[in-house]
């Protein structure tokens, strides 16, 4: 074997070993991801840790929401249509279900932390059921949660908004999470009340 052939052989071996280890690392990562999605239970990996500030200005994390099933809605206070609609709906569901949802927790998470500080959120939520907790934080904190929770958020300028007016495109569904903080389901915007009530009952009983 000539020196040149040996060199080529060695380089090929190095490349092979490197490729193999890379493949192992990747598959590890893939395996991990599959395990985290509930290991075949078919539960998507939506949710996870977050650190935010509530409407009283206090730091809250996902751990504060463990132990009880929870209902989350993502929106912003400058949203005139869908957000109040959904929050009024949640309010009416809470009233309708009464004691049945005593164990559920309800949270409104702003996707517009720049405009929605704790005081703004607190004032906004006065119009709705008092059990709905407001969550905000730094833009980084909120976008980290949105990413983990697969919440779509996009700031869009309003054309004739002179003072830098903007709206925020965002996920419309209400998220249902079980008492371990795992994804349980959603209630779509405009879903019939009977469906929504049935889902909340199931979350209270099984979540």
């Amino acid at each position: 074997m000539s020196l040149r052939k040996l060199r080529i052989f060695l380089w090929v071996s190095v490349a092979f070993v490197a490729g193999l280890s890379l493949a192992l690392v990747i598959s590890d990562d893939v395996r991990e991801r599959i395990l985290h999605t509930g290991g075949g239970e078919g539960v998507a990996a939506i949710g996870g840790p977050f650190e935010l500030v509530d409407h009283r200005g206090e730091t809250v994390t996902h751990e504060d929401f463990l132990g009880q099933p929870a209902v989350y809605f993502f929106g912003f206070t400058h949203c005139p249509d869908i957000c109040p609609t959904t929050l009024f709906e949640i309010t009416s569901w809470i009233q309708e279900l009464g004691e049945e949802v005593d164990d559920l927790r309800f949270a409104f998470v702003t996707v517009d932390p720049e405009r929605d500080g704790p005081e703004v959120v607190a004032q906004y939520l006065q119009a709705f059921d008092e059990r709905i907790v407001g969550l905000t934080g730094t833009p980084e904190q909120v976008s980290a949660m949105a990413e983990n929770w697969r919440v779509y958020v996009r700031k869009v300028p309003l054309e004739d908004g002179d003072g830098g007016d903007y709206t925020v495109d965002h996920t419309a569904s209400v998220y249902l999470m079980d008492s371990d903080g795992r994804f349980f389901g959603t209630i779509a915007f405009g879903e019939a009340d009977d469906n929504a009530l049935a889902k909340l009952r199931r979350l209270a009983q099984e979540g």
């Binding site: 249509d81 869908i82 779509y152 054309e159 965002h170 996920t171 419309a172 779509a188 915007f189 405009g190």
Partner: peptide
């Protein structure tokens, strides 16, 4: 107009 398409709400003048 508000639209909800693929679970994303958008509002446009």
């Amino acid at each position: 107009e508000t639209t909800v398409i693929d679970d994303v709400m958008r509002m446009r003048p």
